Measured scan of single mutants.
Amino acid sequence: MSAKKSPEELKGIFEKYAAKEGDPNQLSKEELKLLLQTEFPSLLKGPSTLDELFEELDKNGDGEVSFEEFQVLVKKISQ
């Protein structure tokens, strides 16, 4: 996936994966893993990378990643 996506496209991608289980407005760690493996495969170099990335993105510590938290990752990789 190209990092150059419109905000609407990014929101659609986020919602597609977030709706798989639990809260449709939040990504669980498994949903984030699936999204990254599919859309940004070069970001995941191993299991520790996912854990570190999830911890970094989950700013409020609720165990899930909101769209706002996800946007931090998108901004970081599009620079």
Rank of each mutant, 00 (worst) to 15 (best):
L27W: 00
F67Q: 14
K11A: 03
D62I: 05
G63N: 05
L44H: 09
I77K: 03
D23H: 06
E64Y: 07
D58W: 09
P47C: 14
E31G: 12
P7W: 05
I77E: 03
E15Y: 15
A3M: 12
K4P: 05
S28F: 01
K59W: 14
E55M: 11
T49C: 04
E39D: 03
Q37T: 12
N25V: 06
Q26H: 06
T49Y: 11
E55H: 12
G12H: 14
L50D: 06
E31R: 06
E68S: 05
A18T: 03
K16H: 05
G22N: 03
F67D: 01
E15S: 11
E8T: 08
E64R: 10
L10Q: 05
E30P: 13
L57A: 15
E52Y: 04
L35K: 00
K59R: 11
E69H: 11
F40I: 12
F54V: 10
G12W: 05
N60A: 15
M1G: 01
L43Q: 13
L35A: 12
P41C: 03
D51Q: 05
Q71C: 05
K29F: 12
A18G: 06
I77S: 03
S42D: 08
G63P: 08
E69Y: 08
K5W: 00
F70I: 01
K11Y: 04
L36D: 00
E9R: 02
Q79I: 01
S48C: 03
E68L: 05
F54D: 13
Q71V: 07
L35P: 00
F40R: 04
E8M: 12
K16L: 09
T38D: 15
E55Q: 13
F67E: 07
K5H: 03
K33N: 10
K45F: 06
P41W: 04
P41F: 10
E15L: 13
S48A: 11
E8I: 09
S2I: 15
L57R: 10
Q79K: 14
K20W: 02
S78P: 15
K20Q: 14
L44P: 15
D51V: 09
D62R: 11
L44W: 15
F67A: 04
L36H: 00
E56N: 13
N25Y: 06
E21N: 13
L32N: 00
L35S: 02
Y17C: 01
E64P: 12
G22Y: 02
D62A: 10
F54G: 08
E9M: 09
L50F: 09
E30R: 13
K4D: 15
I77D: 03
Y17G: 01
G46Y: 12
G22T: 02
L27H: 00
V74A: 12
F40G: 03
D23A: 10
K45V: 09
E39F: 01
A3V: 15
L32W: 02
V74T: 13
E55C: 10
L50W: 09
L34Q: 10
P41M: 05
P47Q: 14
E56L: 05
M1L: 01
Q71N: 07
N25W: 01
D58G: 12
V72Q: 07
L50E: 12
E68Y: 02
K16T: 05
G61Y: 06
E8C: 01
D62Y: 02
E68H: 11
P41R: 07
K16A: 07
S2Q: 11
F70M: 04
D62V: 09
N25M: 05
K75W: 04
S48W: 08
I13L: 09
V74G: 09
E52R: 08
G46Q: 11
L10M: 14
L53E: 13
K5L: 10
M1C: 00
S28C: 06
Q79N: 03
K20Y: 04
L57D: 15
T38L: 06
L44I: 13
I13V: 04
Q37K: 11
A18E: 00
E52I: 08
G22R: 10
F67I: 03
E31Q: 15
Q79L: 10
L50Q: 09
L10G: 00
G61I: 10
E69G: 14
F70A: 03
P7T: 15
V65E: 00
L36I: 10
L34E: 14
L50G: 06
V72W: 04
K76I: 04
Q37F: 10
K20V: 06
E55V: 10
A3G: 05
V72P: 10
E52N: 11
F14H: 00
N25L: 15
G61D: 05
N60K: 04
K5E: 04
A3T: 07
G46S: 10
D23L: 09
L35F: 03
Y17M: 03
L57N: 08
K45A: 01
V74E: 11
G46E: 09
E8Q: 13
V74R: 02
K76F: 02
L10V: 05
V74K: 14
K76Y: 01
A19F: 07
N60W: 05
S78D: 15
Y17S: 01
E8V: 07
K4L: 14
L10F: 08
G22W: 00
P47S: 15
K76C: 01
A19W: 04
S48R: 13
I13R: 01
K33G: 13
L53S: 10
L44D: 13
G63E: 15
Q37G: 11
Q26L: 12
F14A: 00
S6H: 04
E39I: 02
Q26P: 01
F14N: 00
S28Y: 01
L27S: 00
L53V: 13
E21K: 12
S2V: 15
N60V: 13
D23F: 06
G22C: 01
K29T: 12
K33M: 14
F40P: 00
S28P: 09
T49P: 07
K16C: 04
F70D: 00
E8S: 04
E8W: 02
E8K: 11
N60P: 11
V65L: 14
G22M: 02
N25A: 12
K16P: 01
D58Q: 15
K5R: 03
G46L: 12
L32H: 00
I77F: 14
L43M: 12
L32R: 00
E52M: 09
E52W: 05
L44A: 15
T49D: 05
F40M: 14
K75Q: 04
I13D: 01
T49N: 04
E39L: 02
K76Q: 07
K16V: 02
L10H: 03
A18F: 01
G22S: 04
F54Q: 11
E56I: 02
N25K: 07
D58A: 04
E56G: 11
S6V: 02
K33E: 09
T38R: 05
F54R: 05
I13W: 02
K76W: 01
Q37I: 05
K29V: 13
F40E: 03
K45M: 11
L50P: 07
L36A: 05
L27F: 01
L10D: 01
G61K: 07
N60C: 05
